[in-house]
Amino acid sequence: AVTGSQTALLLRAFEKDRFPGIAAREELARETGLPESRIQIWFQNRR
Rank of each mutant, 00 (worst) to 15 (best):
P35G: 05
P20M: 03
L9W: 05
S5N: 11
F14M: 03
G4Y: 06
Q44R: 08
G4W: 08
G4T: 14
R47Q: 07
R18S: 09
R30L: 08
I22V: 11
I41P: 01
D17I: 04
A8T: 09
I39M: 01
L11G: 04
A1P: 12
F14I: 02
R18N: 10
Q6Y: 07
E26V: 09
E36W: 05
R46L: 11
A23E: 13
Q40D: 15
E36P: 09
A29K: 03
I41S: 12
L11R: 07
L11P: 01
A24H: 04
S5D: 13
Q6F: 06
L9Y: 07
A29P: 01
A1H: 12
E36D: 08
A23F: 08
A23H: 10
L10I: 00
N45F: 07
S37H: 13
I41Y: 08
I39W: 01
Q44A: 11
E27P: 01
R25Q: 06
P20I: 04
A1N: 12
P35H: 09
R46Q: 15
P35N: 07
N45K: 10
F19S: 06
N45Y: 08
I39N: 01
A23P: 05
A8N: 09
I22W: 09
S37N: 09
G4P: 15
G21S: 14
E31T: 11
T3M: 06
L28G: 00
Q6V: 12
Q6G: 03
F43S: 00
W42D: 03
E15I: 09
A13S: 06
F43M: 02
L10Y: 00
L34Q: 02
L34N: 00
S37M: 09
G33N: 05
L10E: 01
I22A: 13
D17M: 06
S5R: 14
A24Q: 10
F19I: 05
L28S: 00
R38A: 15
L34V: 04
R25S: 03
D17Y: 05
A8K: 11
N45R: 09
A1S: 12
E27C: 09
E36N: 05
F43H: 00
T32P: 00
L34E: 02
P35Y: 03
G21Y: 02
R25I: 15
R30H: 06
R30Y: 06
V2R: 04
R12V: 09
P20N: 00
N45P: 00
A24Y: 05
Q44W: 07
P20H: 02
T3R: 06
D17C: 15
G4H: 14
E31K: 12
L10N: 00
A23R: 11
F19E: 05
E15Y: 11
D17N: 14
E36V: 13
T32Y: 01
I41R: 09
F14C: 02
A1T: 12
L34K: 01
R12H: 08
A13N: 03
F19G: 01
S37K: 10
L9T: 11
I39P: 00
R46G: 03
E26C: 14
R47L: 09
L28A: 01
T3S: 12
A13G: 02
K16E: 07
G4R: 14
G33F: 02
A23M: 10
L34R: 00
T7E: 15
A29S: 11
A8E: 14
Q40V: 12
F14H: 01
L11I: 13
Q6C: 07
A24I: 09
R38C: 15
E26N: 11
S5V: 13
N45C: 13
E26S: 09
L11D: 07
R38L: 15
S5H: 13
T7Q: 14
L28Y: 03
E36K: 04
